[in-house]
Every structure is written in C-alpha cells, then in structure tokens.
Amino acid sequence: MEYETRSGTEVPAIGLGTWQMDTYTAYESVATALDLGYRHIDTAQAYGNEFGVGRAIAEAEVDREDVFLTTKVLPTHRSVDAIVTSVEESVERLGVDAVDLLLIHWPNPLADLETVMGGLNTAIDRGLARHIGVSNFGKDRLDRAREYSDAPIFTNQVLFHCWWPQRDLLQYCQANDILLTAYSPLANGAAIGDPLLSEIGERYGKSSAQTELRWVTQHANVVTIPMSTSRGHLRQNLDIFDFSLSRDEHDRITRPSYYRTGLSMLRGQLGL
C-alpha cells in the first residue's frame, strides 16, 4: 500500500467507495474489504448506508484507529446547527466517536459557503471529526472555502479518471497541499476493457482496471476510492503497487474527453 500524508495523518492511496450500496451490501463489501487489507472507507449521508458501514468496521478484526473513515454531509443542511446535528446522527449511525474526515457532499447554490464551512469547523470543535474537506468543488469555490475555514481543507473529492484528468484543479491542490480524492476512477466501469489500458497492462501482467487505478495513484496528492462489491475485484484493485507506469505510458493513458466522460456518467446514473 502507498499513502499520502496530510496534517500528520496517513491516508491509504486506495480506499473503498460505497456509493449506490444499500446498508446490507455496504456491510458485506466493507467487511470483505477490511479482511483483504483495506484501511480507507468512504460513505455519505446521502448513501443511506452509514449503519452498515459502521457495523462492518465494528465487527472487523481491525482496530478503529487503523481505519480512515470519511462521511459526507448532505448539502441541504445549510445552517451550522443543521450541519452539526446531521453529523451527530452520522456518528451515531456509524457507531464511532468521530469520523476521520467530514466533507460537504456538493455545493448548494442556496447555501452560504461561509456558514457551511463554519458548520464543518464546529464539528471539529465538538470532537465529531478530525479533518474536514469538500466534494465536487471547482477551483474558485475551493479557494473561497479555504478562506472561510479555520481548519485546513484536507481534500476535495471529485470525479477523476483518464478521460477527466482535472489538470487545473489537480495543480491547484498540489500547490496548496490539498489531497484530491478521486471518485469513479474507473469511469463507472468504462475503463474496464479499454484497449489502450489493456495493452499497457498486459506488459505488467495487470488488467485494464488495475492499469487505470495505477494511473490515478501515480499522481502526486491523489488517493482514490473505487467502488466494488466483488471480493475478486476488491483484491485486484488493491494489487496495483508492484509496478509503475512510465512517463510515456502515463501520458498516453491521459485522454481528456467530454464525450467519453459524459457516457460514463450516464452509465453510472443508469446503474449499467
């Protein structure tokens, strides 16, 4: 496993995302992932599966302090009190004293960003979270969030894959010591079987999915949270740190495409 370290905290470069998992599925997947060696788990209030995630962590033969746990606040919570109350409820569902990382899930144009960041900071002050961050923020909004926050912005969790490499945002994060947490790194499955990824991966005895995940994790300041419910795929996703892509291979894989990104997002929304 490789790690990124921010604010004295090590974050495993590969974690497990639990989007589109119900509580039971999340329980099964997190339990399997922890058994295989995962120590980075991501959930959200919007997913409705925090109870299952927390139960899997509680029952695992892994110390709580060894698991980096993230949850995300619904952006419909627009006041400090509403945000803090929702985090108290999340912590209770998860069965933990605090989460390691608390994010606002996406920008709400009706919410005051300074108030939102105040709510996240209050959650830290009350011992409900160790670190805070944002999700789905562009560079300008991320810059303003930093201005409004007393605590450092630990991460910005965003869509990131070889067809959506987010170069400007990544450079901003790298310049300001902010992690970029990549969700949907396999482009909702579109990267699986991609001819170029398959060709390059074959040189290393790796699948197209493993090659794409290595492309993601070879970026400085980037960690990722691919979603999987299959024990075999979970094991394969973890098995990517015994090879490195060359600069030429890395550059060839990077193929920005609005078209392919749009198709992959539609695929994800339809659950294909």
Rank of each mutant, 00 (worst) to 15 (best):
V73I: 14
R39M: 11
L270S: 09
Q20C: 00
H131T: 01
Q236F: 02
V134C: 06
T9S: 08
T181M: 12
V11H: 01
T217Q: 04
A123W: 07
M117I: 13
E202T: 11
L110F: 15
M265G: 02
S184R: 06
T76C: 04
Q218E: 14
A44S: 14
D242N: 11
E59R: 09
E92A: 14
S86P: 13
M117Y: 12
L197S: 10
Q210E: 08
Q236L: 08
S207M: 03
V91F: 09
R6T: 02
R144D: 14
S208F: 03
S264R: 06
R78E: 11
Q210C: 07
D35L: 03
S184I: 01
W215E: 04
W19V: 04
H40K: 05
G271T: 10
A56P: 11
T217R: 03
V91K: 05
I240D: 07
S264L: 05
T9V: 15
A56L: 07
Y24F: 03
P185Q: 05
V62D: 12
E10T: 02
L94I: 11
Q269A: 12
A31D: 13
R252T: 05
L238P: 10
M21C: 09
T122G: 00
D100N: 13
T25V: 07
L186V: 07
L186F: 10
M265Y: 08
S244K: 14
L270D: 07
T70G: 04
R6M: 02
D63P: 11
W106E: 04
G118Y: 10
S7P: 00
D177N: 12
I153R: 09
P165N: 12
E114I: 01
N221P: 03
R235K: 15
R247L: 01
R260S: 04
Y148K: 00
N237G: 07
R39Y: 14
G193H: 08
M21A: 09
L179V: 01
Q210R: 05
S246W: 06
Q45H: 12
D194N: 15
P256V: 08
R130Y: 05
F154V: 01
V87I: 14
S149K: 02
Q174C: 01
L94G: 11
S29Q: 02
S149Y: 07
S246G: 13
V91I: 13
L69A: 10
K206E: 04
R141I: 08
E88V: 02
G127V: 06
A13H: 03
G205T: 09
Y258F: 13
I200Y: 09
T76I: 13
E199K: 14
L169H: 12
D242C: 07
R141F: 00
A58R: 15
W164A: 15
I57G: 06
R231A: 15
E28R: 12
P75F: 11
